[in-house]
Design a protein around this nucleic acid. Structure first.
Lengths: 220, 220
DNA sequence: CAGGGTACTTACCAGATGGTCAGGATAAGT
DNA sequence: ACTTATCCTGACCATCTGGTAAGTACCCTG
């Protein structure tokens, strides 16, 4: 368990979120972030104890505080990194060559891919988008630019008549909550004893696309 | 975990949990349940402190523990009462005279009415349908009969050819998660600075009905 | 080899938390 | 008047919480 920090991990760590000095501790830092994401996303922020988190990692609690100053700081870092992951996936599509309806479809597929590959991230989103969450403003700040960009694009499409004129923000939030709701749904399915299949997810995706088409397609 | 208490206490608690002699303390008990529902549904179970809860009621923490033995006991009582409210609303429809598709619509409208009248209840559902929630099995037990009844009815309809044959449980869970997701959505809307309107809710309801029709209508 | 920065730890703590225990007040039965 | 049951409270406590302070071990640089 002690796992003496081997010396040669030095530079080979790809720092994902905020650029951080890539020393020996970079790996530990990432491991803490991973565990924290998992814990926050399942048992919640209040339900997570730094001691438990540290024990699960074979590390002392003070190591966590060394890297992230405070518990809130840790939550902030987790939110930032997760938002960065989401942003990367979505900006890629927004910058891509797909246009019009294809782009909407590509966005939806991209989000669902992330949701499937990183279910923990969805759990975090659900936890953080709670009214009293300490990280709600942080999430808003981290996701804001993406939302603004998407909204601006939609409004350009509407101006050009390629999209039906509606409240872009409302549509975006509906789509967002559908995806986050999917995470809940999967958990409820598990609780009911059913192992969620691809079918559930595919159905939900089809539903969302149908909703978007109904809201946005100028032909209807 | 002494957990002992006297036999008399145990019996008394059990009795109090189910029926509830209408003594002087009944009012206090209900007030505690109301406040607990509100607190659990917003800041969550772990985020709720018995001291704070009691202070908000102008009562000592021991009063809460007197009525509900433990914090978990309080959560259990809150879940039970909320589930009873939901059950009452839905069984009324299931026992009503509406048939076939009308009954499905009546059920959906009934659920949405409850969600609008008691948003706190939706918050509780979201909190409790979390993977690690201490009340997850309790909720399952309290809502199980209703789900079973609905599922049985759907399967009868399928046998009679009035409903397309699908996995009834899957459809029910999807509908459930849509409704609970609505609560989240409203909160996110608030966080984004938009005051949620009737329109949001109506849109979601229409969407859910469309999904159900697509899943169940034998004509399609 | 001295000095400094990084990564991590041991020791410790003040406050909050859920919970126990021993009552006190009031009303109702006998 | 005595008991009994219900409802509520003050005093107290073990435990856990996030957080501080002061090291220790290690590498890199001069």
């Amino acid at each position: 368990m002690p796992e003496a920090t081997t010396i040669r991990d030095t530079v080979r760590d790809t720092v994902r979120g905020v650029t951080r000095s890539s020393g020996r501790g970079a790996e530990t830092r990432e491991r803490i972030l991973d565990a924290a994401l998992s814990s926050f996303g399942t048992i919640g922020y209040d339900g997570t104890s730094l001691d438990d988190l540290a024990n699960g990692l074979g590390v002392r609690k003070q190591t966590i505080l060394y890297h992230f100053v405070s518990k809130r700081g840790l939550l902030g870092a987790v939110v930032d990194r997760s938002a960065a992951d989401l942003n990367a996936a979505l900006f890629e599509v927004l910058d891509g060559e797909a246009t019009d309806w294809e782009r909407v479809e590509a966005l939806v597929r991209s989000v669902f891919r992330v949701a499937l590959e990183q279910p923990l991230l969805m759990g975090l989103l659900r936890e953080v988008s709670r009214p009293g969450s300490p990280a709600a403003p942080r999430l808003k700040g981290a996701m804001g630019p993406l939302m603004d960009r998407a909204q601006a694009w939609m409004e350009r499409e509407m101006d050009a008549g390629r999209m039906r004129r509606t409240d872009a923000q409302l549509v975006l939030i509906s789509a967002y909550s559908t995806v986050v709701g999917l995470a809940t749904e999967i958990e409820v399915l598990r609780a009911a004893g059913l192992e969620p299949t691809m079918r559930t997810v595919a159905t939900r995706r089809r539903e969302l696309l149908r909703f978007l088409r109904a809201s946005l397609d100028p032909q209807r």
